[in-house]
Design a protein around this nucleic acid. Structure first.
Length: 192
DNA sequence: TATCAGATTCCCT
DNA sequence: GGGAATCTGATAG
């Protein structure tokens, strides 16, 4: 089911936790999809957020409407995808860090060059490679576009206490803030 | 576990 | 122009 229009406009940390268990779907000739098992929140005034120093060509989508994608390239070779959240112009987003493969697994395996399900999408750069997410999806709507977030089973198959909250990965600024969330017990997270 | 190369974007941190 | 960046895979210990 497509997310409600207002889903991503709420408090970013709340949205981050609610995204766990949702499905990230890329509609192509062959659809690929995975269940979100790990996310990180990036907030307004957060030195670790790309939006911290204001609007640039690269981070422009992060200041756009909630529910759209912010896609960027990092370390010269990897692509990462965020869900823009909060009020428009706030510059807040949720980084999708890991997926449990669900649909189009053959295609994901071919793109990743491995058959190992556990490492198909267990990292922000891995999942974009597995789903074929590229820069041309930057700024597209996650409700209408080729890349979509769909709501999880209702009721969800896990309880609030099954969400683990820890510090974020791969950042140097504000590294102590506990803004990373993942599903306890999932074998598909990038790191425990 | 720890370290490091790889290779692009973008602000000067 | 320099250097850092929401990372990954390979290699050494």
């Amino acid at each position: 089911m497509t997310l409600p229009a207002t889903f991503c406009e709420r408090d970013t940390v709340t949205v981050a936790k609610d995204l766990l268990g949702c499905l990230l779907v890329h509609h192509e000739e062959t659809a690929t999809a995975g269940r979100i098992v790990e996310v990180e929140a990036y907030l307004q005034g957060d030195p670790a957020a790309h939006s911290y120093r204001g609007v640039t060509k690269r981070n422009r989508a992060m200041f756009g409407p909630a529910g759209h994608a912010y896609v960027y390239r990092i370390y010269g070779m990897h692509t990462c995808v965020n869900v823009v959240t909060g009020a428009e112009g706030a510059g807040e987003a949720v980084l999708i860090r890991a997926l449990e493969p669900v649909t189009g697994i053959d295609l994901m395996q071919a793109r990743r060059g491995t058959d190992d399900l556990l490492s198909l999408a267990s990292g922000p750069g891995k999942l974009t490679q597995a789903l074929g997410i590229t820069m041309d999806l930057n700024g597209t709507s996650l409700r209408d576009g080729p890349l979509q977030v769909r709501s999880s089973a209702n009721p969800p198959e896990f309880r609030p206490e099954d969400i683990v909250q820890t510090t974020r990965i791969g950042i140097t600024k504000a590294a102590d803030l506990p803004l990373r969330f993942y599903l306890k017990g999932s074998r598909y997270v990038s790191r425990r």
